[in-house]
Amino acid sequence: MQNKNKKLKLLVPLVSVFLGLLIGGIIMLLSGYPPIEAYIALFQGIVGDSYVIGETIRQMSPLILSGLAVAFAFRTGLFNIGVEGQLLVGWLAAVYVGVTVDAPAVLHIPLAILAAAVAGALWGAIPGILKARFKVHEVITTIMMNYIALYSTNEIIRSFLLAPGERTENVKESASLASPFLQSITQYSTLHYGIIVALVAAVIMWFLLWRTTMGYELRAVGFNQHASQYAGINVSKNIILSMAISGAFAGIAGSMEGLGTYQYMTINAAFTGVGFDGIAVALLGANSAIGVVLGAALFGGLKIGALNMQSIAGVPTELVGVVIALIIFFVACSYIVHWLMNRVSKGGKI
């Protein structure tokens, strides 16, 4: 039975992806686009040559981190919609350190990433404290904190860091994650070392949750607050801690944009969307570290591949958003399959 469950765990996402693509194809057919040609273009746009592979991997790094952020809070029973805001303050903190501090790269890069993590953690801890202390619903506070982050970071850039073109200066070379080597082996894509940071973060999340007392407590609170309280776990502390760590991951996601992809921060007219995508990535990955990495690969790949699909088959890139939504629906509805399988394997007894 253990084996059967494991098989099912793998099977469900695969079937969901297949069904999502199938219905996406039907939508294309109905609206007069060639589905097979489009999907070939989509596939080539993900793994067709080293350039698009580089782009896909680059797209993955912030998605992994924002997915980890959402997943980590979920494990403690908290819904962090505020990844977007935590990402923005992390982005700003990383760029600020990158622009103003002088240090050799071995110190400068970790310092900038650390700054992003701390900024994100503080931004995430505020809803955590409000939840623990005043029982304020974290969904509202994180949404509010998103807007506060958006307007405040813009104002700080405008007042202190403004360079021509509604943006900050580039970060110093010693703080940059850009890699001429990685770029040269991928036909000068925008690939940077951020993916290593993201993968390390995934390992850290797994380690924290499954190999430490702290992780045990966090998960216990997620399962049942009252039981945890009764067992002597400090629920308030764990809620704050969980939101802070979640925020730290989100902040580091921001540093990927600041130190890697863009090398600067723009004045954002609207949200980046990476934080909201993180919710989807976490859900696809069933809130596990390895799942988040795979979910980000799928999500990032589809987003990059969509560009090729649009230019070759003329299908609007948004179709990919529809396909992703369908995949999430199917993954979500698969729980009934799990339930059925469990029931059957127990011989009809509940």
Binding site: P316, L319, V320, G321, V322, I328, Y335
Partner: peptide, 29 residues
């Protein structure tokens, strides 16, 4: 999804957001 198929309601809602955003712009184009 969330009533008959007993899917996680938050997951289903998030999927709905992506579906609506994707479909609306797709159809607009």
């Amino acid at each position: 999804a969330s009533i008959t198929l007993k899917a996680d309601q938050v997951v289903s809602g998030v999927a709905l957001n992506f579906l609506a955003a994707g479909l609306a712009i797709f159809l607009t184009k």
